[in-house]
Design a protein around this nucleic acid. Sequence first.
RNA 1: GGCGACGUAGCCAAGUGGUAAGGCAGAGGUCUGCAAAACCUCCAUCCCCAGUUCGAUUCUGGGCGUCGCCUCCA
Length: 471
Amino acid sequence: MTLRLHNSLTGTKDVFEPLEDSHVRMYTCGPTVWNFAHIGNLRAFLFYDLLRRHLQVAGYRVTHVMNITDIDDRILDQAMHAGTTIAEYTKPYAEAFFEDMKMLRVRPAEHYPRATEHIQEMIRMISTLLERGNAYVADGDVYFRIASFPHYGELSHLDREGLRAGARVAADKYDKESVSDFALWKKAQPGDEKIGAAWDAPFGKGRPGWHIECSAMSKRYLGDTLDIHAGGVDLMFPHHENEIAQSEAANQRQLSRFWLHSEHLADATGEKMSKSAGGFTTLRDLIAAGHDPLAIRLFLIANAHYRSRLRLSEESLHAAGEQVRRLQDFARRLKLPVAPKDGGRLAERVAEVRHAYREALDDDLNLPQGLGHVFELLREANAALDSGEVGEAAARELLLLMADVDAHADVSAAQDTTLAAEVEQLIAQREAARKARDFAAADRIRDELRDRGIALEDSKEGVRWRRVAKV
RNA sequence: GGCGACGUAGCCAAGUGGUAAGGCAGAGGUCUGCAAAACCUCCAUCCCCAGUUCGAUUCUGGGCGUCGCCUCCA
């Protein structure tokens, strides 16, 4: 089993091996907590989760660091308007982020460093860059001197000429040597201190630029060279390019061996969802609209490969919801008593599918393909269950397969097993009515439960129920 | 203008130089008191044109279309 990952640095799928045996150090760009995360943001975070989970499946210990950006221009503006401090302003959004992660069953990272708690590390790195001549002070701001870093642009494959042609005119506001030089430190403006957004530094009171936090915090928690750095495609330039320039100029070491980028989520019109363009959807919106968080989870990680654009639609969310239901129903069937012995060669087939599933995931995390194999087998296995041909050996293999799937998808584990006593009573009443062949009464009870969001299914093994969307 | 990606059934989507996984939706059927679930059957020649090849959806070139990045951005 060889894990291959698409590396933006080389533009190809490369065999992944960590620097340190069996231990992966991974840094992923987290949320800027100036607002609720929209589900395009969440797609990226779920991509990190898929990556992390698969690295663990592949046998690695993972140290995952995900930053919380709690200072940037938008936060400053908002806090200023709200008449509060940036710490107070960002608090509820940071909390909402963790709630979202929990609802979507994202496995927590080892560290969630916040930018405002690592100002000293940033100041140290900026000082190093100044000493080395990679940075300069201009009117209280500190800029990175791109001319001092010949490799600039190699990740995003943008050359200096292209940058110059595309650069917006910023010279009116800043006193930079070159228009593409970027800020490491921004001089404090009136009012910044009052909202808790100004820090003392050898080069003057101010606040960090956007990019330096990732360089400083990844070094602090993971060292000079990471195995993997991941983010959304829109971060490739300038953010990741700038991180590379800062870190490699300061540390004289490669920042990351693998760079992974996830594609955008598009809205219903097919265009990238973005906060500034207005009209974005949050997890809360989708849940309020009746979507199961697990359906949203599966949609985001499995409806399309992570490097393909994904379009948000009711239909796709519904399809994902049906897939979740099928996986859950199947997992539940497996818990029932099995047949005395196996018929056919199902156990072998399951072993084949387990292998194919693993290979798909090893091939740059191709979960959509892996699940394709699984659903194909699900049909065969359900048929075998229907005809009582699933014995212990096949059932054992099937449970292993479902565990394989849950290692990534994590949607099939039965949830919500407690029923209110009243509902249990209604089910019992209906059973009594059915025995007495009073089907009118039985159907009345079933309809009533359906209205309350509980669907009943009569099977050979007894009555099953599950939660469904209320009508 | 520069760089790049994509275009597969009603919708979503995987994929390969040798006649297209899977899911949703739809139609018919088995089972069921009825339903639901499950299962069975049906439903595509892969944007267009040219080229390479014994053979291309898969490679090359051109065209059309959609989208992304070019310092707010997951």
